[in-house]
Write a protein that binds this DNA or RNA. Structure first.
Lengths: 258, 258
DNA sequence: CGCCTTCTTGAAGGATCTCAAGAAGGGTGG
DNA sequence: CCACCCTTCTTGAGATCCTTCAAGAAGGCG
């Protein structure tokens, strides 16, 4: 049963994400932290937002990983976005509540459901909050744009290398015994749905990366053995992710009214 | 030489586009129409926004068609968005002025450069304007999302059929002697860059569609002979484009203050 | 222990690519 | 007005990356 509590610790992570790119006043920050939110658990492989459904809340991922699914007429699935802890998986639903794709838990998932009404009230009251949300959703769009290039113009090896570099960056993966390691609880079949390949070919490609000493994916973990080489192979240039924005580069359009 | 004039007629089209999905008061509408704008002509095949450039204005397409380009390491190009008359090609630059892709004229282009400062002032003063802009840019993202599915999970025929249906819908193509006709001034090589195929294969695929009596692309025009069949083949479901939103379904989050 | 999901590998087939060359069309300068 | 060039379109033939089909191995969970 969902329950309502003060969720600052979980919303804090979402707020930090916004603050990494946008400037918000104390009041505006508090408005985010004060959003009502209902915790929910979602078992792996089950939809928590259905296709075509009109939703009245947005979902912050607290733990686990979620995928946005499109589909072709044969039932072949394509994942059009991955969302990890701290991200709001359907931020655009705030301005466009009727979705045309489904959200599914790829691993066991903990989410925070935040009512649109509250988000909209915060965005309406504080234009800078609206701006920060828009900015955040434009990063999602930039990722999507990269994925089009990835799927459209890169071969299997490069595609997967690019994805691993992207996810390492998004997860802020740390160095461990010289390697870059992060938890990535998806199956090879999921990877296939992200990269537009077949699970069989993903398997062979991962084998290739492993044998080349570049990266290993096993036990729900990715271990990148040679970041330099993998990034070159994957043609990875992280600017689009807008991580590492220095404080003075963070943006704010709206005049500050404290 | 660019010059500054009252550009209401050109901005009117952009405003109409916003109004097809969002509700704006008279004042807010006027704020859009009053935006300063500099007309510019761009010759075909030349960039008007370069990759990595920090821009201080956004571009409304007045006439012609523009493409957003990504690239892989071999120099193979991938178009990640097409923008047609009435659209703002780099709306997201308002919140994210440093782009990671280039905008190029695919045909001779007339654009309106709208300074960010003015757009931001309008968005800051009228939250509903910010909301409408965000909503519009979320349609761009929805298109991008469809393109990932297109390129990732559909074969060449289906990809091109889908694209033709999408563009017909975006252009609001009309029936003419039983066919659906619209001007689409791009080359087969451009189509290849959109669909992640080679120009040679695009050529063969168009031939297939022509011989099947579904669609003809020639002389910078597309003629769809059998919309029903093409839409089925292309797995086209237009909801994501958010055209044909009935007036009572148009959205507004922010309270109206006239 | 047994089942189910996930991973792994082999072999054959096919969609798309690459390379190549010619045809068609539009613009420009002599 | 014609010749020429350049872009775009068209078609053929062989190569290749990825898919499909199939089956077994490995691992987690009741």
């Amino acid at each position: 049963m969902p329950f309502q509590t003060p969720h600052q610790p979980n919303l804090r992570r979402f707020l930090d994400r916004l603050l990494s790119r946008s400037v918000l006043s104390d009041r505006e920050q508090q408005a985010i932290l004060d959003l009502p939110a209902y915790v929910a658990q979602v078992p792996a492989n089950s939809d928590f937002v259905r296709m075509g459904e009109v939703v009245d809340h947005a979902c912050v991922i607290v733990e686990g990983i979620a995928g946005r699914f499109g589909q072709n007429a044969n039932g072949a699935r394509q994942i059009t976005a991955l969302h990890i802890a701290g991200e709001m998986a359907d931020l655009h639903s705030v301005v466009q509540p009727k979705g045309c794709s489904a959200l599914q838990a790829l691993s066991t998932l903990t989410i925070l459901r935040v009512p649109h009404r509250a988000l909209r009230a915060a965005a309406g009251r504080y234009p800078a909050v609206a701006e920060a949300l828009w900015r955040d959703s434009s990063v999602d769009a930039a990722i999507l744009s990269q994925w089009v290039v990835n799927v459209g113009r890169r071969d299997a090896r490069t595609r997967i290398a690019h994805l691993l570099c992207e996810m390492a960056t998004r997860y802020k993966a740390y160095r461990n015994e010289g390697d870059i390691v992060f938890e990535f609880p998806v199956t090879q079949a999921h990877l296939a749905d992200v990269t537009g390949l077949t699970p069989v070919h993903v398997n062979r490609t991962l084998k290739g990366l492993r044998e080349a000493g570049l990266a290993i994916m096993a036990d729900r973990m990715v271990r990148i053995l040679d970041w330099e080489e993998l990034a070159i192979l994957g043609e990875f240039e992280p600017a689009y992710l807008q991580t590492d924005i220095r404080p003075e580069e963070r943006l704010r359009i709206v005049r500050i009214v404290q």
